[in-house]
Simulated assay, not measured.
Amino acid sequence: MQQFIDAAPGVRLWTEQRGAADAAPLLLVMGAQASGLGWPEPLVDALAAQHRVIRYDHRDTGRSTWSFEERPYRIADLADDVIAVLDGLGIDRAHIVGMSLGGMLAQMVLADHPDRLLSATLIGTMALSTTHCTRPDGSTIPADALPGISPEVLELWSRPVEDHGPAAEVERRIEHWRVLAGGHLPFDDDYFRAFEHRVIAHTGHHRVGTAHGSAEHDGMLRTDRLARNEVPTLVVSAPADPVFPPPHPQHLAQCIRGAELVEIPGMGHALPPAVHAPLATAILTHTGAVAVA
């Protein structure tokens, strides 16, 4: 079922729901410049076997309002959109799963609105905390000294994006996914080509959004609140992630009180078919344990 939610004046967000209406809600929050279709269909279906799964398009993605150039907003406003989606769908509390920027938004909700969450799962993201990272040998790494984004990704992101038509844009995106995937698992060009064709068809155009990279990101740190967290939280470690490589996941799990850590072997900063089943199992095991508790 598809539905538009009024998140703010002049801002409408596209949402989709799948699964039993009376099942525990599970909200999927994608990364920067990624629409809700960034969550692959097989993964959504697997989660919908046990949950009322909701995915949505951020502002300036997919079928939601594209308005940043006329009305700039902050990253914090995207976190407010998470609550707006829950309110608009009449959901008091939900499990939340956030990837990349979506994992940061989920942390902000975890810190600011814990009463709205049943659990949180964080994937491919960094901690919104200044807490030091502790190595297994007991030594520490300052939060601001954790490894940065790989040079290959930075070089790719530094290239100007030129419009040479839909076909060329799809191929550019495939190259992007190849780098983000991390190289530990076989890369399927045809899978990501079909994936991007679906995204473009859903969006209605192949333009590249830049709003989330330009939005103000001040006021995102939640060090103290994350350290006092009481919401069951799972951190997914992706060992091949070139954006937030280890020990970012370990640091994240240390910053959030009570967080558990699980590794998906070979996973990078992408969701290829090889990770769908283990990722769904990790999420459902986590949400299932919360339900039992």
Rank of each mutant, 00 (worst) to 15 (best):
H197W: 08
P186L: 15
H205D: 14
S214G: 06
F195V: 00
T210S: 08
A194C: 08
H197C: 09
H205F: 06
A194P: 00
I200F: 06
D189R: 05
T203S: 14
Y191F: 15
G209H: 05
G213F: 14
T203L: 11
H202N: 09
A201N: 10
H197G: 02
A211V: 06
F187D: 01
D188G: 03
R193D: 13
G209S: 15
A211G: 07
D188I: 01
P186W: 13
G213N: 12
A211D: 07
T203G: 06
R198D: 15
G209M: 14
P186E: 13
F195L: 07
I200E: 02
F192I: 00
A215W: 05
F195I: 00
R207Y: 09
V208N: 05
F195T: 01
V199M: 12
G204K: 09
G204R: 07
A194M: 11
Y191H: 14
F187H: 04
H206C: 08
V208W: 05
A215K: 02
H205E: 11
H202R: 04
R193G: 07
A194F: 01
V208E: 10
A215Y: 06
V199P: 00
R198Y: 06
H206S: 08
H202D: 05
D188A: 04
V208R: 10
H205V: 06
P186R: 12
F187A: 03
D190E: 15
A215G: 07
H206I: 05
T210F: 09
A201W: 03
